Structures are given as C-alpha cells and as structure tokens.
Simulated assay, not measured.
Amino acid sequence: MFNQLVLTGQVCKSPKFTTSPAGVIHGQFSIEHKSIQQEDGFNRNAYVRLHVVTCGEQQQQLIKNFIVGDEVQVSGFLNRHESKNGQAIIAIHAQHIERLN
C-alpha cells in the first residue's frame, strides 16, 4: 500500500511541542493550501487546511522558528488522529519539510 502526500502552503498555526514518556519530541502545526486546479477542463478552487505532525529533535530544530505566513512544503504520510473530544482529524506525518521563503 502506498500513502504519500506532498503539499505546499502557508503555516496557519504556529508549532507546539510535547515530549513523549520515551523522551521523543513531537511537534504539531497547521498549514493551509489555496490554489486553482484543473478538473475535466474547468478551473476549480482548491482549499485545504491540514494538521502536520513531526517527530524527533532534528524536525524540532527545523520548525521551531516557523511563524504564521511562512511558505512551506511538507511531504509525508496521512494518518487519522482523534481530538480530545473524539473528533477525527486527518494529519500528515512529516518525513521532509522545507521552508520556501
């Protein structure tokens, strides 16, 4: 099975960090993507806001200075999470992040 996504967008929620009981640093932030896509010969406005999850000290060093409005490209795999009230959240688990500006 293949589960891979590459998305560019703007940071719309600044990074926050937690440390697991095993001592692993997890980061979370959100990006939003807006574009015009072609579908069956027609222009379609595309908009998505996606939760990004990172893991490890190297990723923390990369994203710790991200601020709202930064342009980024994130690649990784999609996974389902649940909010504290039980709502489903789709997140991209980042395997590569690049700041574009």
Rank of each mutant, 00 (worst) to 15 (best):
M1I: 05
M1C: 04
F2K: 11
N3D: 03
Q4G: 00
L5W: 02
V6M: 09
L7K: 11
C12I: 13
K13T: 07
S14N: 14
S14Y: 01
P15K: 11
F17R: 08
F17C: 06
T18K: 14
T18H: 01
T18Q: 07
S20P: 05
P21M: 09
A22E: 15
G23I: 07
G23C: 10
V24D: 03
I25Y: 06
H26C: 04
H26P: 02
G27E: 04
G27V: 01
G27R: 01
Q28I: 00
Q28D: 01
I31H: 04
E32R: 03
E32W: 00
H33M: 05
H33P: 05
H33F: 06
H33R: 10
I36K: 15
I36V: 15
Q38I: 10
Q38W: 10
Q38N: 14
E39G: 00
E39L: 09
D40N: 15
D40L: 13
G41M: 07
N43Y: 08
R44T: 12
Y47V: 07
Y47D: 10
V48H: 04
H51R: 13
H51M: 09
V52A: 07
V53F: 05
V53M: 12
C55K: 15
G56A: 13
G56T: 13
G56H: 11
E57L: 10
E57H: 11
Q58G: 05
Q58P: 01
Q58E: 13
Q58C: 05
Q59T: 06
Q60A: 13
N65W: 03
F66G: 03
V68G: 01
D70K: 10
D70R: 02
D70G: 06
V72H: 02
S75V: 08
G76R: 04
F77K: 15
N79D: 11
N79W: 07
N79F: 11
R80T: 14
H81Y: 15
H81F: 15
E82N: 07
E82P: 00
S83I: 02
K84M: 02
N85L: 03
G86D: 10
Q87Y: 07
I89E: 00
I90H: 04
A91D: 09
A91R: 03
H93I: 12
H93E: 08
A94L: 08
Q95K: 11
Q95R: 08
H96T: 04
H96W: 01
I97M: 09
E98K: 11
R99A: 08
L100H: 07
N101M: 05
N101T: 06
N101K: 09
